[in-house]
Nucleic acid binder design. Sequence first.
DNA 1: TACAAGATGTACCTATCGGTACAAACAAGC
DNA 2: GCTTGTTTGTACCGATAGGTACATCTTGTA
Lengths: 190, 190
Amino acid sequence: MPRTIGERKDAIPALAEVFRTHGFEGASLSLIGAATGLGKGSLYNFFPGGKEEMAQAVLDHIDGWFRDEVFTPLRQAAEPQAGIREMFRAVDQYFHSGRRVCLIGAFALADSRDRFAACVKDYFAEWVDALAVALRRAGISAAEARAQSEDVVAVIQGALVLARAANDEAAFGRIMRRQERRLLQGLPKA
Amino acid sequence: MPRTIGERKDAIPALAEVFRTHGFEGASLSLIGAATGLGKGSLYNFFPGGKEEMAQAVLDHIDGWFRDEVFTPLRQAAEPQAGIREMFRAVDQYFHSGRRVCLIGAFALADSRDRFAACVKDYFAEWVDALAVALRRAGISAAEARAQSEDVVAVIQGALVLARAANDEAAFGRIMRRQERRLLQGLPKA
DNA sequence: TACAAGATGTACCTATCGGTACAAACAAGC
DNA sequence: GCTTGTTTGTACCGATAGGTACATCTTGTA
């Protein structure tokens, strides 16, 4: 009979780290094996589709995390302001204050974009949309909310680029804090 | 006797395109050969250091372009406002309105960052610094100028990520135009 | 304890990787 | 037309890529 524990899941954090560090092409099976502690046998047992299925599993996991921790709070928080604050908090935590890179952002820039196009596209579309919902609920017009959301999601991605380029984690926090302040101060009725 | 024309230079645009499209690891010598129309013989004749030297040459070329077309205008324009407008114009042109990706940004996110750390770091540092100079000359305090510059450079990089993720070039233009407006309207004496 | 099904290590496959060696083709100056 | 140095194509190298085959453990259940 099969094991009750899905070991597949346990490999995902390590897989995510490898893909984040080396990209899709750069993440060789030997690196993946070293990072997860699994041999090819196990790897191809859990992910018969090979590297592509591994990456897809990681993307799905990231997607789920953001849905639960960021998008849903943004859409459903009793106070939209609280949802927005929660977004900045969760994002700062997730990206380890800029020391960690956004895998989906990195995939978007590389030619992995085409391979995982739907996933990459949906992730950002959902993020922008969820933030726009919060802003609209906070009293901003639909058009203005979309514009602000697009800008904020963009600046977060850019902050990750800058922080990593300069090897200066502090930069990420600085940019994030300014955006949060700007966004919340721009809302009506304080 | 040697040829007077340095053919090496002529290969750089094609090289840049390959690295932009496939990243450093993904740009195989066969792809490079196909893109440039050069065989290994020529390639290693012009770039004895191999792929790494090719990428470095591309980075240097990009750096030079931005220095001439963006950083210097920002620092030296008679009217700082004009320098800023010129920055947005040149950047929009360079990135083909969001259809093209920033190679240095992509390198920053990948592990190519370590290989070309100095170049990657300087590029963004110079950009932020040059923009801050323009803002200061336009009458903004040093601290505020640095903050605004960081935010704007970040949002440009993020806009490239978003545009490519959504496969929506228009997004880049939208974000850029909003930033330009916000930046110029925030300056004293109109 | 025996069995079935999942989990794992190892050996092996072909293709391609980045890089080297080198001889032939080429161009320019005398 | 010869010489000199550059530019090229081609053959080749060891290493590693992603992936498959399969025999051997493990493990939960009866």
